[in-house]
């Protein structure tokens, strides 16, 4: 009886681990998409609205899912502090702070951190160019993320279950 319960627990946890790993692959394209939409909104705010970065960030941050939206909200918050931080520091700190909550990888992070060097520091035309470049970059990564999702999501899910099964069989 104890053995049976033990095997059930092992099987269950192994399946869950597989699910979690699989979910990482499923979440990455979703978050990348959110990020792309957020940057698209930022482009509109900057190019057509000339909205100050601070206000645009708050607006976008509130509308996006919290893993991505949080970056914008934190950046806006940092801009408002009395320490008079530079735009670059505000943005990069916000990215670093929220990164662990996302499932995104280092490639995406580097692209975002790079954006920090130019955000708000040139005319609208130039800002648009940089935002477009960033979005093209991210779109490429999104494509790649989708391919990986197709390949690995189900694999890890089944692998978890099968791995658990293997352990149980070996133990019995």
């Amino acid at each position: 009886m104890v053995k049976l319960i033990g095997s059930a627990i092992i099987l269950f946890s192994a399946t869950m681990v597989g699910w979690q790993v699989g979910k990482l692959y499923a979440m990455r394209p979703v978050q990348l998409r959110t990020l792309l939409i957020a940057l698209q909104m930022l482009e509109t705010e900057i190019v057509y609205g000339s909205t100050p970065l601070h206000r645009a960030f708050v607006k976008i941050g509130r509308r996006m899912a919290k893993e991505i939206g949080g970056i914008f909200l934190t950046a806006a918050e940092l801009m408002g502090t009395a320490e008079a931080l530079s735009t670059q520091v505000c943005w990069q700190t916000a990215v670093e702070q929220h990164w662990s909550q996302t499932v995104l990888r280092k490639e995406e992070k580097d692209v975002l951190l790079n954006l920090g060097y130019v955000l708000g520091s040139s005319d609208r035309h130039d800002q648009q160019k940089h935002l477009r470049l960033t979005m093209t970059h991210l779109r490429g990564l999104e494509e790649e993320a989708r391919l990986e999702q197709g390949k690995y999501e189900n694999m890890y899910k089944s692998l978890g279950f099968l791995g658990g099964l293997l352990v149980v069989i070996l133990m019995l």
């Binding site: 900057i46 909205t51 601070h54 530079s86 040139s122 609208r124 800002q127």
Partner: peptide, 23 residues
């Protein structure tokens, strides 16, 4: 130079693009 960057960030409210006419 660092102070200059900070100063520009501050007076433009981090948004130089919103000051095209002013510039």
């Amino acid at each position: 130079e660092e102070h200059v960057t900070k100063l520009i960030n501050q007076i433009s409210q981090h948004s130089l693009y919103a000051l095209e006419e002013e510039l």
